Computed example of a mutant assay.
Amino acid sequence: MSGSTPFKMRLVHLDLKGAPPKVSYLSEIFPLFHDLGANGLLIEYEDMFPYEGHLQLLRAKHAYSPSEVKEILHLARLSELEVIPLVQTFGHMEFVLKHAAFAHLREVALFPNTLNPHEAESLALVGAMIDQVLGLHGGSSWLHIGCDEVYHLGEGAASRRWLEQEQHSKAQLCLSHVRAVASHVLARHPGTTPLLWDDMLRDIPKDQLAVSGVPQLVELVLWDYRADLDIHDKVLLMEKYRECGFLRLWAASAFKGATGASQALPPIEHHLRNHAQWLQVAGSGPADTLQGIVLTGWQRYVTGWFSPYHRRRNLIHPVMVQHIQPEALSLLARWSSLVQELEAALQLVFYPDAVEEWLEENVLPSMQRLQGLLQDLSQAAAPQPPSTGPTPDTG
């Protein structure tokens, strides 16, 4: 791979927020990554990092110990893989904001995915996380600060008040937080350059991006996991970012995940086409525009976020409730109406005992499943204290 690719850096993404592997397994696959042409790792620790002090409650039950993190770094060096840690600092903050101690820092009280960018404590929180992670990754050339899919941005009470003042915009709100986080990284860790997912910046006008100061602070990672991505459109987007002042850009494809909420096996053809199209993008733009590529591998793509396991343990993400509950209620209403019509039609032909038997065998099981689903949704939607259990992932 390394002999035929335009990408100087070729990173394999390890998503540890779902079914993280043991260190002994990593010792087996790191040499394989190297043999296949990779020269780096993007490690998204989430709750597998051994946070300490007031952040210790973020640790998962089987979080890596400091010595295990050091062993991972040692194993990476043996396979000539440069390690870049990823710390979410804006969106995808469920593993932090689900805890009672930090729930007050949510942008919207019901949803633990987005950080409130107006609170000084929010920046202090992500700053402490960054400092602890980089403390165990001394000399890291890059730190990925996430900031993708910042859902519900601008919907909190503080944000709504801010947006009403002086014609502020959600774009300004996003750029302000990114600038603050990146500035913290550069001030406290001057040898480390922040990386940033690009999706929240794609639609921001060029002039606004250019004057924000963000292009001088971060390197953007353009992600697109589709098998039919628009190569010309991607080249134009790269040109836009360059004109705004982003001098170094990265790409991100996917080798698994990102194709739906229920995948038992990766659709290999889809991912191969995605990789091939990113190679075309790299060959279509100015030489050396793309610093490297991240081959992402997203976890928790088997049965999605509403599996029987999650339902039994009431580990249902509020976002899923918001998506599913209205449809389920509508379906139950249609079913109930249809059953009444069906029962009336059957009674014209059969005696009551035959009608009861047919409905109980052919209709009742489906109705009970739907009613059980709605019961679980109602329980998940009820106000509850912030969780301290496993985080249901949103991918």
Rank of each mutant, 00 (worst) to 15 (best):
E119D: 12
T259P: 03
H177Q: 04
Y151K: 15
L125F: 04
Y151D: 12
D353V: 10
S141A: 13
V294F: 07
G304L: 08
M48Y: 13
L16Q: 10
V235H: 06
M238D: 05
R179D: 07
S307W: 03
D131A: 07
W305H: 11
R188E: 15
G3S: 14
H62K: 15
R312I: 07
E46H: 14
D203C: 04
L359M: 08
D131M: 08
P318S: 02
L290W: 05
L370T: 13
A210G: 09
S141L: 10
S284G: 15
L342P: 03
Q167I: 08
F30Q: 01
S169R: 12
F30Y: 06
E68Q: 08
G245N: 00
A63R: 14
A382I: 11
M9P: 02
Q165Y: 01
Q280E: 11
H310E: 08
T388E: 10
A101E: 10
E46D: 15
P386H: 03
A354M: 15
R59Q: 14
L249P: 06
L374I: 10
P390F: 00
A382E: 13
N274Y: 08
N362D: 12
Q322F: 04
L331C: 11
H92I: 11
G156P: 03
I204E: 02
C147S: 08
P326M: 00
D148Y: 01
A287D: 14
L331H: 12
L229Y: 09
V12H: 00
K170F: 01
I84E: 00
L81V: 00
L222V: 13
Q347R: 13
A157V: 15
V69G: 03
P266E: 01
L153Q: 00
D228W: 06
D47T: 06
H232I: 10
L143Y: 00
L315K: 11
E327D: 10
Q132Y: 00
Q371M: 10
V23H: 03
H54S: 14
L374S: 12
V221N: 03
V211D: 07
H317N: 10
L196Q: 00
Q167N: 14
P392A: 04
H189Q: 12
G18S: 10
G297A: 14
A180M: 13
E28V: 03
W358I: 11
D198M: 08
L81M: 03
Y25C: 10
K234W: 14
K61M: 04
V363L: 14
E164T: 11
T303N: 01
D376Q: 02
L123P: 07
D233K: 15
L217W: 09
D47F: 02
